[in-house]
Amino acid sequence: MRGGVFKNASSLFSSYLNVRRKYMKIKQKNLAPYLLLLPALALLLVFRIYPMISTVIESFYTNNLTADAREFVGFANFTRVLSDQIFWKSLKVTFVFNLINIPIQVFLALVVAVILNSRARGISLFRSIVMIPIAVSPVVSTTLWKTMMDYNAGVLNGLLALVGIPRQEFFLVKEQALWSIVIVTAWKGIPYMMIFFLAGLQEIPVAVLEAAKIDGASSWQSFFKITLPLLKRVFAFVLVTDTILNLILFAPIWLITKGGPQLSTNLIMYETYRRGMVYGDLGGSSAMLIVVILIVAIVLGLQFLALRTDD
């Protein structure tokens, strides 16, 4: 009897150990990914989530002029921003800039990707050269362009003089400044977007293109009827990425024009930064930022709708 009790207890204990071992195994298995994700999640929390929440909170408070003067003001910052002519001017400049810049970047990125996808001789060297701008930091590339397009000492004006074209003012006059910023951003943006197109092009099965060729399709027909439709997903990705990057463009404006001349390059991100960080209007700046985020979300939503794929 006693032996039977011990036997039962022993088997109970061993099955307990088995269950526990299994449980620990499962637990360890389940915990591992979370533990591995923890550093990234912590960084995300500190540098993304916390600032976002803080921005939302700040937009409902008065200007943080002194530590004691912080006061809840409801939507007052939003009404102030929305009735501010400079905000609307800035928004208009941002839209004009994007309407010029995004189509140029996307179109040229596609063209370059198609060229680089060919099997012409020396294409790998050309591919490497085209990739160089991606490796250069935005600050460095902006500074280089600022120097090259300097009115007095810029190499571009030197080259123009060689062919008899008078010196151009580039960043100095409102008629040219925004276009000059488009050049600066396109230099980095085109190769970056091109990579995605190139990857998309290389995913297209050669057999499909060859079949079309056998069926008598010309190169143009293949491109428009097969390649482009198969790139629709890549297009959606590139368009969304490019829109986000350009709507929040900051470095070239901060380093070159500071929003001028005559507010012609006063993009909304720079306006937001200047209000908050330079002039201490954190409430107004946060409210402006939230409006911008909402606008970006709407634009992206529309883009997703327009480029929705059925599969």
């Binding site: 002029l65 501010d84 100095l172 006059v173 409102k174 209000r275």
Partner: peptide
């Protein structure tokens, strides 16, 4: 920035009108 614009060829009246608007937009918070 308005002085810089005028120096670079902007009309003085236009540049100063615009910057008056800009400055008052910033000063409104005070």
């Amino acid at each position: 920035t308005a002085f810089a614009d005028i120096r670079n060829g902007a009309d003085a009246q236009e540049a100063l009108d615009l910057i008056a608007l800009r400055i008052e937009s910033e000063l409104a918070k005070y």
